[in-house]
Simulated scan of single mutants.
Amino acid sequence: MATYGHIQFPPESAAAPSVLAPISVEEHTATINAMRPPKRQRPVVAVIGQNEGAEITDFVVPYGVLARSGLADVIPVAPRDGAIKLTPALSVAADASTAEFDRRFPDGADYVIVPKIEDSADPQVVTWIQEQSAKGAIIVGICAGTKTLSAAGLFAGRRATAHWYDIAKLREDNPSMTWVQDRRYVVDGNVVTTTGVSASIPISLALVEAIGGRARATELAAELGATNWDARHDSSAFYLDRTDFWVQLRNSARIWAHEELGVPVSDGIDEISLALVADVYSRTRQSIAVSLAKDLAPVTTRSGLRLLPDYAIDDADLDIVLDPIDDAAPLKALDIALNEIKAHYDRETAAFIALQIEYAWPQPHEAVISD
C-alpha cells in the first residue's frame, strides 16, 4: 500500500461510488435546529481570515451567501486591518481587525466562519476563536479550517468531519474525536465542520435555513443553481490515486507552460462565481488567476466585499484574459470553468481539481449539492 503524507492511495475505505441515501427529515431538521442563531434575531457573522492567507472559496462563498440572504450582518475580519491575501488567488480587504470587532461586539459574534488559513495554528486567530466560542458563538470550520479548530482544542469528544486529505491527521491529533463519514457537514454543540472546499455552498445554505427558514434558503439556492443542501455525501469517492499524484507532479514540472490568467472584475461582480472560477483556475498547477480592473482602486462586489485588484488593464501583460463572469448561477460557472480547463489542459487536470475541492464532477448539475 503506497502512501503520500497521511494519505494512502487508494485508501482502505475506498469503494465504488454508491447511490446516496437521502437524509431523513428528522435528521435534517435536528441539524438545522442546532444551528439556530444563539444570540440575536439578526445575527452577526464574522468571517475570519489570516492576513497572510485564507482559502478563497472557504472565505468568500459563506460571506457571499449569508450577505446575499439579507438575514445577517456579515463582516470580513483579520488579525490586522488591511488586506487579506486569498489563496490560491486574489485579495480582499478586512472590514475589521479582531480588536475592532471585539470593541463593536463585546458579547461576541453569533457565527464565526473559519476557512483554511495559511498558518492553521496562528496564535492570534486561535486565541480569538477560543474567546468567541467561550462567548457562545457557533464556530464553523470550512474544509481545512478544521485544522484551526483542532489547534483551538474544539474537537475533544466531538463528532466532526473535514476535507478528505486532513481526516487522518485530525484523528491522530484528536483521539477522542469521532469522524462522521458520508456527511457533508456535521454539527456537535456549537462546533460545525464540513468536508472539502465545495461544501462551503451547502453549509452556507443550511445556515440561511437556520437563520431565516426553509423558504428563504430555497429561494437563494435557486439563485446559486442548487436544488439540495442537506448533508448527504459519499466519503469513499474522494481519495488520492496514482493518476492524481502523477498529474500534480507533471503539471508542476511544466514550468514553460505556466500561465497567468486575467479575470475581469468591476463593481457589482458576483463574488461567489468569482471565487469559484478563480479558485479552480489556480489549482491546475499550470496557471494562476489574477484580477484585472480598470485601475487599482478597490472593487466592491455584489454583496459588499472589497476586492483589491491585482492589475490595471493598461498595465497588464497576461497570457490569457478570461471572458467576464456573467450572471449565470455560481454552480453553473463552476461547471463551465471545469469544462474549460478540461478542454484547455486535459480531463485529468480538471478531475484533479474537482478532487481538491471535494466536488463530484462530472455529474448532472442539479444533483451537485445532494452529493
Rank of each mutant, 00 (worst) to 15 (best):
Ala329Trp: 01
Arg302Met: 14
Leu338Thr: 03
Leu355Lys: 02
Val19His: 11
Ile56Phe: 00
Arg36Gln: 13
Ser236Pro: 11
Ala257Arg: 15
Thr195Asn: 11
His6Tyr: 13
Leu224Met: 04
Lys294Asp: 15
Thr195Lys: 12
Ala199Glu: 01
Val65Glu: 02
Arg302His: 15
Asp173Thr: 10
Ala215Cys: 12
Ser18Leu: 13
Ser370Tyr: 11
Lys39Ile: 06
Gly49Asp: 04
Val140Ala: 04
Ala231Asn: 09
Ser204Glu: 02
Lys169Arg: 10
Ala144Pro: 06
Ile325Cys: 01
Ile325Leu: 07
Ile325Arg: 06
Ala160Thr: 10
Arg254Tyr: 12
Gln8Asp: 14
Ile75Thr: 05
Ser273Ile: 01
Leu334Lys: 01
Glu209His: 03
Gln124Asn: 12
Leu224Asn: 05
Val263Gln: 05
Ala328Met: 11
Pro11Ser: 08
Ser133Lys: 11
Arg306Tyr: 08
Ser24Asp: 08
Asp323Phe: 06
Ala160Leu: 09
Asp326Thr: 08
Lys294Val: 13
Ala350Asp: 02
Tyr281Pro: 11
Val192Ser: 03
Ala328Phe: 08
Asp310Trp: 14
Ser291Thr: 10
Pro202Asn: 00
Asp371Tyr: 14
Phe59Ile: 00
Asp182Ile: 12
Ile357Cys: 03
Asp234Thr: 05
Val92Cys: 05
Asn339Pro: 04
Ala316Asn: 07
Phe155Val: 09
Ser291Gln: 07
Pro330Cys: 05
Thr98Gln: 09
Val65Trp: 03
Ala67Ile: 00
Asp95Trp: 10
Leu71Ile: 02
Leu296Ser: 03
Asp326Tyr: 04
Val60Gln: 08
Asp95Met: 15
Ile7Arg: 15
Ala78Phe: 09
Leu207Phe: 01
Phe238Arg: 14
Thr161Cys: 03
Arg232His: 03
Ala109Gly: 02
Thr300Tyr: 01
Asp234Phe: 02
Val92Asp: 05
Ala257Phe: 08
